[in-house]
Simulated scan of single mutants.
Amino acid sequence: MKHERILIINGHPDPQSFNEAIANAYTDALEAHNVEFRYLPLHRLNFDPNLRYGFRDTLQPEPDLLAAIDDLKWCSHLVWIHPIWWYGFPALMKGFIDRAFLPGITFHLNADGSVSGHLEGRSARIIATGDTPQNLYTETYAESARIQLQNGVLAYCGVSPIAYTYLHPVYASTPEIRQEWLDQVKQLALDDAGLGAG
């Protein structure tokens, strides 16, 4: 499927991380083919990641957060890049979701208790990095980070379909392996843009 408006969200707090290299590989591939995209590295945003009042009171969104919400509304395809820490994702990324994915913005609770997702019509791709072997992550930890983001956030808000790629183990990887991963990411970008064979 071809996507003309792609939003890439980097959830890693370190601009020198391998996740940044992954984001650069993805955006470079799109840029080389004049695909319309926006890049949202969360470490550049100025916002309070703490939903300090829960849903009891409203915490007014900061300008950077308002711009990010506009990006969510603008895109037709979401790409999330994040590391897996403690079988979840970084606090910065969790805080972004807590502050941006709110009732009335990304979903609506109906009177009968059902949910209407405001992100319907959008698809997503998750690219996660970690050190846990695939079999252990799947069998012992039930792909916890994937379930949280894919089912608990994106699908809940109406996003479908959602593709998933897990790159591992990062800690023990060689420069050659990392380059293979970056080449793979470039191909995923072309596939998402409708320019690849996938």
Rank of each mutant, 00 (worst) to 15 (best):
L72W: 05
I105F: 00
D183L: 13
R52L: 04
L119Q: 01
G196C: 14
R56M: 08
T106N: 04
G158H: 06
L59M: 09
D112A: 07
G194N: 13
F55D: 13
A29V: 00
K94P: 00
N46C: 03
L42A: 04
N110S: 10
N10G: 12
A68C: 07
S173A: 14
D48H: 05
L59S: 08
P15T: 11
R56K: 15
A100F: 01
T27S: 13
G117S: 07
Q187A: 04
V185L: 13
A193L: 09
T165I: 04
Q148N: 08
P90L: 08
V159S: 14
S123L: 10
F55K: 08
H43M: 07
P133F: 12
Y39G: 05
Q184E: 05
A189V: 10
Q16G: 15
H43Q: 12
R178Y: 07
R52K: 13
H33S: 12
V185K: 12
D131N: 15
H108E: 12
G11S: 08
R99M: 04
N135R: 15
L42I: 09
L78S: 04
P175L: 07
H77G: 02
L42F: 04
P133A: 14
L167Q: 09
H82C: 01
K94V: 08
H33M: 09
A193V: 08
N10V: 07
E62M: 11
P15Y: 15
Y53E: 14
A68G: 07
A172W: 05
L92M: 01
I22F: 08
I8D: 06
Q16C: 10
Y164G: 09
T174I: 09
Q187L: 14
M93R: 05
S114M: 12
A68H: 02
R178F: 08
E139Y: 09
D112H: 10
H108C: 11
R52I: 04
F96P: 00
Y171Q: 15
N34A: 15
L154P: 03
I177K: 04
T129P: 10
I177C: 00
L102N: 00
D98R: 02
E143Q: 14
H12Y: 06
E143S: 15
I126P: 01
Y53K: 01
I8Y: 06
L195C: 08
F89I: 07
R56P: 01
K2H: 06
L42E: 00
